[in-house]
Write a protein that binds this DNA or RNA. Structure first.
Lengths: 225, 225
DNA sequence: GTCTATAGTCGGATAGAC
DNA sequence: GTCTATCCGACTATAGAC
């Protein structure tokens, strides 16, 4: 076997640049920008520290590249559903049900990688950290992921409930997203409060059910208004 | 006026130790533990850097003191409601309405300081940061604030919906809290998505309405199951 | 209790050989 | 393109005068 042959999913990047990027996602995800050291990243990537300024113009450039990398991954998880939503117009009354189906579909996708996936912790930490302390990389996350998702949920909420104000629809969309994100950023709290070791498939499933039930409840009651 | 006279709300701590603590809450809240420097804290407090190891045994000790300080403040905001909840037993059917009233009361308290209060950003950042990167100070936040609040909401959810599983009740409580917290940790996203300058009283009020409406909807639908 | 001076450490970036 | 060696800056903490 020729180790140089490019595989579809190499265990680790073949070239220095890619290895650095992968290590960066990991280390920045675990420690955050300031606490992460270029030394640790280089060590984990198995390359020389000097390669960081060489390929990425320094620590900050590497960080931005890492953020871009994970956002692309995350975005790809919801891209198909977002496309479906854009195609529909939700004009007639029958489309209310279609909108609700799409809403559940989108929420499930987000739950799957925010709560259920094994890479979720490091990916989510970078995203959440940028919420708390926005850097120049915030734009990438907002433009490529947060805003499209928020807008799509708002569109669906409007179609489902008939909410007349676009402003209120966005607030509702944000609250719905919060129900999901809280299980990621508050994972430690959840684990301690319930005496878990972590989120297993069972917990992810329970979380999924609770979120979908409560969202359905909220939407239905609003519709009756 | 004697400056030494202890006032109920001094503009800034009279002694070195208190001034340091206040500055620490501010600087740690803005930058996080690693990025915050003892130099900046000492400068903001108007004291000598050497006072930090002297009074707090170093940067980490000061951080823990700051966390303890803010948790006590936050806890005091909800203490009265938590006490009310503990006193009730929620056994008869009539208590369902009482539970719902208390739930709304508690949520409003949390919204008020998590979204509406001017100190919210720095206080919340410290709390949220400990969720992402728990340190030894996490215990304080969990024991004094998160767990009591989570438990109380779970008790109320149980009383309102008749949810039989305590486990599920906690998950529901977490989701409800998420609706609130998302407006704090995702503030930057909210601001950009809606083209705001920040949360004014008007936005806080809208957020309050949306959260209470959606929570009410979720609870009512669950009751009918 | 508060200060100055400084020790001791570590991080990121660069220069230049190979 | 990758390495070693090194610089420079910034940080926390300590020693010791006052």
């Amino acid at each position: 076997m020729d180790q140089k042959t490019p595989l579809s999913k190499p265990k680790t990047g073949s070239n220095t640049q890619d290895r650095l990027l992968e290590a960066a996602v990991d280390v920045f995800g675990r420690h955050g920008f300031e606490a992460a050291t270029t030394r640790a990243i280089a060590r984990e990537a198995g390359v020389n520290i000097a390669a960081i300024p060489y390929y990425y113009n320094g620590k900050e450039g590497l960080y931005r590249a890492a953020v871009g990398f994970i956002v692309k991954k995350v975005q790809s998880q919801v891209a198909a559903v977002l496309e479906e939503i854009k195609e529909q117009s939700f004009r007639d009354a029958a489309s209310r049900d279609a909108a609700f189906v799409l809403l559940e579909k989108l929420l499930e996708k987000i739950i799957n990688f925010m709560v259920g996936s094994p890479q979720a912790p490091r990916v989510a930490r970078i995203i959440l950290r940028e919420q708390l302390y926005p850097s120049s990389a915030y734009e990438i996350i907002f433009n490529e992921f947060l805003e499209p998702v928020l807008d799509s949920i708002a569109v669906l909420v409007t179609a489902v409930t008939g909410e007349p104000s676009p402003r209120t629809a966005k607030l509702r969309a944000m609250a719905v997203m919060g129900q999901i994100f809280v299980f990621r950023f508050g994972r430690e709290t959840m684990v301690r409060a319930m005496g878990l070791e972590g989120y297993s498939a069972k917990e992810t499933e329970e979380i999924r059910r609770v979120i979908l039930e409560q969202t359905r409840g909220a939407m239905e009651t609003l519709t009756q208004l």
